Amino acid sequence: MAFAHTETASTSASPGHVWALWSDTSTWPLWDPAVERVVLDGPFRLGTTGTMSLAGGVRAPFTLVAVSPDARYCDELVLGELQVRIDHRVEAAGSGATITVETTVTGPGADDVGPMVVAQAPQALRSLVEMAEARVVEGDQRVSG
C-alpha cells in the first residue's frame, strides 16, 4: 500500500531564507502545526537521526535521508509498520523560489493514514512561506535602517 501527496508554493523569499527555516529544527513547530518538538541527535546533515513529537502525543523516530543545503532535505519517519517520507525541495524562481513538499506513506493502511499525515500540509507550507518572507523584510529593514 502507498499514498502520495504533493504541495507546491511560490514565495518572494530566496532558497536561502527557506533553507534557514528548514535546517533549524527549532523553527519546525512554528511553521508546521503537526509538529510539537524536534530533537536531532547531531547536525542537520545526511544520516542524522532524531525524534519528532507530533500533535496528539505521537513520538516518531526519523532520519535525514537526503540533505542538499539551500535546495533539499528529506526526512523519513517510522510509525510502527508505516514509513512516512517527506521530501522538501526549494528552487530559485524569478526573484524568489518555488517550494515543493512531496509526502509518501507506505505500509499497511497507508491509504487511510496518508490523508491524516498531510491534513495540515497546506497550512504548514503557507506558514513556512510567511516566515521566510518575513525574514526577507527583516533583512531589508536592517540593510536600509
Results as ranks from 00 to 15, higher is better:
residue 1 M to A: 14
residue 1 M to E: 15
residue 2 A to T: 14
residue 3 F to T: 00
residue 5 H to L: 00
residue 5 H to A: 03
residue 8 T to M: 05
residue 8 T to L: 01
residue 10 S to V: 07
residue 10 S to N: 12
residue 13 A to G: 03
residue 15 P to A: 07
residue 17 H to T: 10
residue 17 H to W: 06
residue 19 W to A: 01
residue 20 A to G: 01
residue 20 A to E: 06
residue 21 L to Q: 07
residue 23 S to M: 11
residue 24 D to Y: 06
residue 24 D to W: 07
residue 25 T to V: 14
residue 25 T to S: 12
residue 27 T to S: 04
residue 27 T to W: 00
residue 29 P to I: 09
residue 30 L to Y: 09
residue 32 D to Q: 13
residue 34 A to T: 12
residue 36 E to H: 14
residue 38 V to I: 14
residue 39 V to E: 15
residue 40 L to R: 01
residue 41 D to A: 11
residue 41 D to C: 03
residue 42 G to Q: 13
residue 44 F to S: 06
residue 50 G to V: 09
residue 51 T to F: 03
residue 52 M to W: 00
residue 52 M to D: 02
residue 54 L to E: 03
residue 54 L to Q: 04
residue 55 A to I: 01
residue 55 A to Q: 06
residue 56 G to V: 08
residue 56 G to K: 08
residue 56 G to N: 06
residue 56 G to L: 07
residue 59 R to K: 15
residue 59 R to Q: 13
residue 61 P to G: 07
residue 61 P to F: 06
residue 62 F to T: 12
residue 64 L to K: 08
residue 66 A to H: 15
residue 67 V to C: 12
residue 69 P to N: 11
residue 70 D to K: 12
residue 70 D to G: 04
residue 72 R to M: 05
residue 75 D to M: 05
residue 75 D to N: 13
residue 77 L to E: 05
residue 77 L to H: 07
residue 79 L to T: 00
residue 79 L to A: 00
residue 80 G to W: 00
residue 81 E to Q: 10
residue 82 L to D: 02
residue 83 Q to E: 13
residue 83 Q to Y: 06
residue 84 V to D: 00
residue 85 R to E: 15
residue 87 D to I: 15
residue 88 H to T: 14
residue 88 H to P: 11
residue 90 V to D: 05
residue 90 V to H: 08
residue 91 E to W: 08
residue 92 A to E: 15
residue 92 A to Q: 14
residue 94 G to Q: 07
residue 96 G to P: 05
residue 96 G to C: 08
residue 98 T to D: 08
residue 99 I to K: 02
residue 100 T to Y: 03
residue 100 T to M: 09
residue 100 T to R: 13
residue 101 V to S: 00
residue 101 V to I: 11
residue 103 T to Q: 04
residue 109 G to P: 05
residue 110 A to P: 03
residue 113 V to K: 01
residue 116 M to V: 07
residue 118 V to A: 03
residue 121 A to H: 09
residue 121 A to P: 01
residue 122 P to G: 00
residue 122 P to S: 03
residue 123 Q to F: 07
residue 123 Q to I: 08
residue 124 A to S: 14
residue 126 R to I: 03
residue 127 S to A: 07
residue 128 L to C: 10
residue 128 L to R: 05
residue 130 E to N: 05
residue 130 E to P: 00
residue 132 A to K: 05
residue 132 A to Q: 08
residue 133 E to T: 03
residue 135 R to L: 12
residue 135 R to H: 11
residue 137 V to R: 13
residue 139 G to H: 12
residue 139 G to W: 09
residue 141 Q to D: 14
residue 141 Q to I: 13
residue 142 R to S: 12
residue 142 R to C: 06
residue 144 S to F: 08
residue 145 G to T: 12
residue 145 G to K: 10
residue 145 G to C: 10
